[in-house]
Design a protein around this nucleic acid. Structure first.
Length: 199
DNA sequence: CCATGGATTGTCT
DNA sequence: GACAATCCATGGG
């Protein structure tokens, strides 16, 4: 069976995730997000890869304290922290724990399920496996930009839906960082063909 | 398949 | 002034 093929009819969505879902340790929330569905204006898919960043972690943007860029990370949980990467791409995080904890989960890859035509248009890309297989790719596919920084995760245009059952999850070291490179805080859906990189 | 380098700009030193 | 939580095209094995 061709696993890169995407079904024409989107799967039924689970119940909406409330803001309180994020008011826990980032190390609990990150693996719990695998299998959940992220939509922006109805376009998106199933989260298959994330990374956890904690304020005590030298690789986290919040490690050295609040700045104009990372201010949302120091706010309450359940909000989107969006930043520009390498001057070119946008990346989206979900703020966790409690106000001032400054921890967040970076969303790194989705399996596209909703609004695939719109994603292909935005990405100029036909291959379903390349639409959302990276943090910069998925923001482009979903139309996420700096305008979404600070928006709540449980109100339009953003929606999150719970997974039906707990999937098999794999963990590994994070990608593209130079500090605390050994921490195994990257989580993925086992066997997924839509990861940014194999575990 | 893997390795390398350019693009491009906000942010912090 | 350096560098970054990346992506893509290109070139070699």
């Amino acid at each position: 069976m061709d696993q890169s093929r995407i079904s024409a009819t989107p799967p039924v969505l689970g119940k909406p995730l409330k803001r309180a879902f994020f008011a826990r340790s980032v190390h609990e929330v990150a693996p719990d997000l695998i299998g959940a569905t992220l939509l922006v204006d109805g376009v998106g898919g199933v989260i298959v890869e994330v990374e956890a960043y904690h304020h005590t972690d030298p690789a986290a943007h919040s490690f050295r304290g609040p700045t104009p860029r990372n201010l949302v990370m120091f706010g309450p949980p359940g909000f989107a922290y969006v930043y520009r990467s390498y001057g070119i791409h946008w990346c989206v995080n979900f703020v966790c724990e409690k106000e001032g904890s400054a921890s967040a989960v970076l969303i790194r890859a989705l399996e596209p399920t909703h609004g695939i035509a719109a994603m292909r248009r935005r990405r100029g890309q036909q291959d379903a496996r390349a639409l959302c297989s990276g943090p910069g790719k998925l923001t482009e596919a979903l139309g996420i930009t700096g305008k979404h920084n600070g928006l709540p995760l449980d109100a339009p245009p953003i929606a999150l839906h719970a997974r039906a059952t707990k999937p098999d999850i794999v963990a590994g070291v994070r990608i593209g960082i130079t500090k605390a490179v050994e921490l195994p805080w990257r989580y993925g859906l086992k066997g997924s063909k839509f990861l940014s990189k194999a575990f």
